[in-house]
Design a protein around this nucleic acid. Structure first.
Lengths: 213, 213
DNA sequence: GCCGGCCCTATACCTTGGTATATCAGGCCA
DNA sequence: TGGCCTGATATACCAAGGTATAGGGCCGGC
């Protein structure tokens, strides 16, 4: 079981990817002025080599990057296990760009010059969203860890119990005696820490339905 | 119980709000050329007075409308029971506008001149989304109708059953005898058409959790 | 006043679920 | 080889759920 929830309040961070050093610097100082941890990067590659803090965060991304566009990088990230909310900034943006970014789930798309407060607001929104995502993920990880501790038989039984089958029906379907089903069922309830059948049903739905997020 | 699902395949429609008659006309002809039912309106007011078909649809909205902006109208609509997906078109748009529209859930934001195919694609995406929304709504309406047929006591019992309480616990909480709880519980299962307890749990969660959508 | 819906209860019976204890077989690993 | 996990099974017992039948009290509408 992960121990994230037991930690002290996590300090959120903001990663910044922009190839212009002066812009990086001014963004870092702006964000630090409101108490946020700012991590500047000159390129997507540099960003990917860095190990990110295990805390809620947000990514401020210039649309124009060396090598690859920010939009491409956003799409590329969604294929990895990095799911930071993205705030775009750009000096030479247009409407199709912003629409593409927003469709891909960006929090905000700011054309320079933008008001400092707009960026700060967007970053806070992004951090809040990431905080929610991580909370859900924590719960889900706990559940999945418990689910992993089930034996294959127990998983089968859990599936059929959650589907509303009676013990005798489960026994017939799995070619078992009813008493065996009861044993597995009891193990499932114990291992999954379900206090009631409705409880187990909700857990089962979360574990099986859940996409990665 | 509503009878929508029993109807023949519903023909989707596209409502168009634009104050320029020539643009309305060309949009109507474009959409009809791909087999869609197009309903042109010169203003938001005209649109609101019209009774919309009971079918999946999509709204093509000019950002600049007489009286009120398309963005305002989009926000206004979200407060009503009209939940049509919106595709924006505009001749004088900018990035903040498009971002606002997308944040508010717009399907697409197209600056003129745009390619016909882009509008058609967006409209189809919108119609698909509305079709999904209506399907979910149908199911939810059925469930809510069944839930309305429950007596107050039956609702209480349903709530506690779904919460995982035992009959005897429910009896204690509601100051009833256990046998009375069983009667109510049986009525709940029958009226909600739940075939098993897991079934009822899922139904209960849908009915109680569901926002309007 | 009578009927019907709602609410509550009871008896009786059966099914299903849950638990404890114990046994047996196969696979795996120190 | 002995210990451990997994899986399957059995007996026995108790708790909980489900159904059928039969009441009684209350209230609002016809």
């Amino acid at each position: 079981m992960t121990d994230r929830s037991a930690m002290a309040v996590e300090t959120p961070f903001v990663a910044i990817i922009d190839d212009d050093p002066s812009i990086r610097e001014s963004l870092v100082s702006l964000l630090r002025s409101v108490g946020l941890t700012a991590l500047p990067f000159a390129s997507a590659q540099e960003f990917l080599q860095q190990r990110l803090p295990d805390a809620p965060g947000c990514l401020v991304l210039d649309v124009r990057l060396p090598g690859q566009s920010g939009l491409e990088f956003q799409r590329e990230l969604s294929g990895t296990d990095i799911h930071l909310p993205v705030v775009f900034i750009t000096g030479h943006g247009d409407i199709p760009m912003s629409v593409t970014a927003m469709k891909a789930g960006a929090i905000e798309f700011l054309a320079k010059p933008f008001r400092d407060q707009d960026l700060i607001d967007a970053v806070h929104t992004g951090i809040e969203r990431d905080r929610d995502r991580r909370r859900n993920l924590d719960v889900l990880c706990d559940l999945r860890e418990r689910f992993r501790s089930l034996t294959p038989r127990e998983r089968e039984v859990m599936r059929l119990v959650a589907a509303g089958q009676l013990n005798k029906q489960i026994a017939a379907e799995l070619q078992l005696s009813e008493i065996t089903v009861k044993v597995h069922r009891a193990n499932v309830m114990r291992k999954m820490q379900a206090r009631s059948l409705p409880d187990l049903v909700r857990i089962a739905d979360k574990v099986t339905l859940a996409g990665d997020a």
